[in-house]
Amino acid sequence: MSDSTAIAHDAHAAPDHGHGEAHPTYLRHHFENVEQQADAAGFAMWIFLLTEVMFFGGLFTAYLIYRNWYYPAFVAASHQLSVVWGTTNTAVLIFSSFTMAMGVWCAETRRRKGLVLSLCLTFLLGLVFLGIKTIEYSEKIEKHHVPGFHYNLSSFLDPDNDAAAKAASDKALPLDMARHTEVYFSLYFAMTGMHALHMIIGIAILGYMIFRARAGAYTSGHVTFVENFGLYWHFVDIIWIYLFALLYLISRHQ
């Protein structure tokens, strides 16, 4: 076989793997070059997003099954959500996705100020999203629409006394169907809760990134972290796009 088989038999074989010349400091020792390192990190992020897809996949499956089974309950329960808040939040999140994308662009083109600004905007928009979510949640808590021991059916049995139901001109549900609104709210809280948790984690990382970016961390060519975080943030945005369509917009025309 050929002589090119350069397998190191002994430890003293030419230690030319020097940390000499053009190797930037952020290149970790086990990678051949920066390209490989960035590539591996990006690919790893995508694989991680796959696991996230499957994580939400279980919830979406449950949602689709029960929506089919208990459609009237899902319609009535979704009318309890505010389309205005939902749309605002969707817009906020889309905007934050945009600012995040701009942040990545700034990092790639080495604009430190632009990066810090974009990250700050993303951070703020994330907080706005969570703020609106808090308003929505507290409304549910007030109305006892949180599944569990204190769950209250009156909005669905007696829609005339309920502002949201009246606005949607809902008819009263029979008791057995009204009970199934609890399944809707179970899924609502599980899905939006998991999403909000991802937002909180994202915002925490954003805070750290702003801190580092001000020191010029990501604008010297090593943009992997910003890019990967961008992927995460966009993914969270996509989940919300579906949640909005599925949870808020069931049959608004009735």
Partner: peptide
Amino acid sequence: PVIALAIATGKAMLVVLYFM
């Protein structure tokens, strides 16, 4: 629901293809 999901998928595609 078909239209809602189709639009959501379209939006998700844009995010995946361009933002990501």
